[in-house]
Amino acid sequence: MESVLFYIFAAASVAGALLVVFHKNPIASALSLVLTLFSTAVLFIFLLAHFVAAIQILVYAGAIMVLFMFTVMFLNIREESLKFDAQNLPVKLGVLLLILFIFGYFASIGFKKSFSLNHAASLPESFGTVEGVGEVLFKDYLLPFELTSVLIVVAILGVVAIAKRGTD
């Protein structure tokens, strides 16, 4: 049952990712990105990361996607032609080589089953809940967590500075 659901949502996320990259219309790309992020959130639930799945939907599929849609509609971006020039051909071949290398890596050593994902009995009761994640976040990683707030302040200041310069 779980494997069937895994394959369904994995296929949905890959299809969404392909549509993001290969669709002409930027709005359709943004909506396909929502599909990918939602499917990934479902996979997070399979991995017992419930809090992270909720955050994924709230922040990624909510806030970030609204920002993308707003920008695309605000700038009125037209559909573009997907014809690539011939000068991009070496790049394409390089990316294909990268794909082959990574798949070769997984095929050679990745599939030797070193450890299975299914030993949920050894996991603590609070695994993946708000309580468990919060305990790790506020005990072991308190300083990095506080530093992310500095990052957010810097991002806000940067955005305001860029936007002000654009209007002058």
Partner: peptide, 23 residues
């Protein structure tokens, strides 16, 4: 659960990056 904590950090960085990038 450290991996999930790092996922939250990555999410924060992604949000900041998208805000600055779209500006």
């Amino acid at each position: 659960m450290t991996g999930q904590v790092f996922m939250i950090m990555t999410l924060t960085v992604a949000a900041a990056e998208v805000a600055v990038g779209l500006a």
